[in-house]
Amino acid sequence: MCDREDIRARGGPLLPAVDLEEFYGVDRRPAAGATPLAELVESLLEVFRAGGVRATFFTVGEVARTHPSVVVRVAEHGHEIACHGDRHLPMDRFDESAFADDLRANRAAIEALGLPAPTGFRAPLMSLDATCAWAHRILREEGFAYSSSVLPARTPQYGWPEFGSAPRECAGVLELPASVVRVGPVLVPCFAATYYRLLPEFVARRLVRIAARRGAVVGYVHPWDVDARQPRVRHAELADRPLLNRLLFVRRGSMRARIQSLLTDGWPTATYREFARTFTGHPSGRCR
Rank of each mutant, 00 (worst) to 15 (best):
Gly172Asp: 12
Val181Arg: 07
Ala239Leu: 07
Asp102Ile: 09
His235Val: 07
Ala38Met: 07
Ala64Phe: 06
Asn106Ala: 13
Glu62His: 08
Arg168His: 14
Ala117Cys: 13
Val208Ala: 04
Trp267Asp: 04
Glu22Met: 03
Val203Gln: 11
Leu40Gln: 15
Leu174Val: 02
Glu175Leu: 08
Val226Phe: 12
Val26Pro: 02
Met1Asn: 13
Gln157Met: 14
Arg252Lys: 15
Gly164Asn: 06
Thr35Gly: 08
Arg258Pro: 00
Met1Arg: 13
Ala112Val: 03
Val71Gln: 12
Asp92Pro: 00
Gly78Met: 14
Cys132Lys: 07
Arg182Tyr: 01
Arg137Ile: 09
Pro167Tyr: 02
Gly33Gln: 13
Thr271Asp: 07
Pro90His: 03
Leu89Met: 09
Ala109Ile: 05
Val221Ala: 15
Arg197Cys: 10
Gly85Phe: 10
Leu263Cys: 03
Arg246Phe: 02
Asp102Met: 08
Ser261Asn: 13
Val71Phe: 07
Arg168Ser: 06
Ala98Thr: 14
Gly25Glu: 12
Val180Lys: 04
Ala34Gln: 14
Ala145Leu: 14
Pro185Asp: 09
Pro185Arg: 11
Ser127Gly: 06
Leu14Ile: 04
Glu169Met: 14
Ile210Lys: 14
Pro152Glu: 15
Val63Leu: 12
Leu243His: 02
Phe57Trp: 07
Arg286Lys: 01
Leu89Val: 03
Ala82Glu: 11
Gly12Ala: 10
Gly172Ile: 11
Met91His: 01
His67Cys: 11
Arg122Ala: 12
Gly215Asn: 04
Ala109Arg: 09
Val41Lys: 12
Cys190Val: 13
Ala64Asn: 10
Glu46Ile: 00
Gln260Phe: 00
Val150Gly: 06
Ala32Val: 10
Arg154Pro: 00
Glu162Met: 04
Ala236Cys: 12
Leu139Arg: 07
Ala100Tyr: 05
Ala228Ile: 09
Pro189Tyr: 01
Pro16Arg: 05
Ala17Tyr: 03
Ala204Gln: 01
Ala31Cys: 08
Pro30Ser: 10
His77Asp: 13
Arg4Ile: 14
Glu76Asp: 13
Leu115Asn: 04
Thr66Val: 07
Val70Lys: 07
Thr131Ala: 14
Thr59Asp: 07
Arg122Phe: 03
Val173Pro: 10
Arg232Cys: 09
Arg29Ile: 00
Tyr220Leu: 15
Arg209Ser: 02
Phe249Met: 11
His84Ser: 11
Ala31Arg: 09
His67Pro: 02
Asp3Gly: 02
Phe57Gln: 11
Ile138Arg: 15
Val218Gly: 01
Leu44Thr: 00
Ser97His: 12
Leu244Asn: 04
Gly164Cys: 10
Glu111Asn: 07
Arg229Thr: 14
Arg209Gly: 03
Gly51Ser: 09
Gly219Asp: 11
Glu5Val: 09
Glu201Ile: 04
Leu207Ile: 06
Leu207Phe: 01
Arg232Pro: 04
Arg107Glu: 14
Ala112Thr: 05
Leu40Ile: 08
Val208Asp: 00
Thr66Gly: 02
Glu21Ala: 08
Ala32Asp: 15
Phe57Tyr: 13
Thr271Arg: 06
Ser284Pro: 00
Trp267Glu: 03
Arg277Asn: 08
Ala276Val: 10
Ala216Thr: 03
Ser179Trp: 05
Gln260Thr: 10
Phe99Trp: 09
Asn106Pro: 05
Ala257Asp: 15
Leu139Gly: 05
Ile7His: 02
Trp267Asn: 01
Gly33Pro: 03
Arg154His: 10
Ser127Asp: 07
Arg234Phe: 07
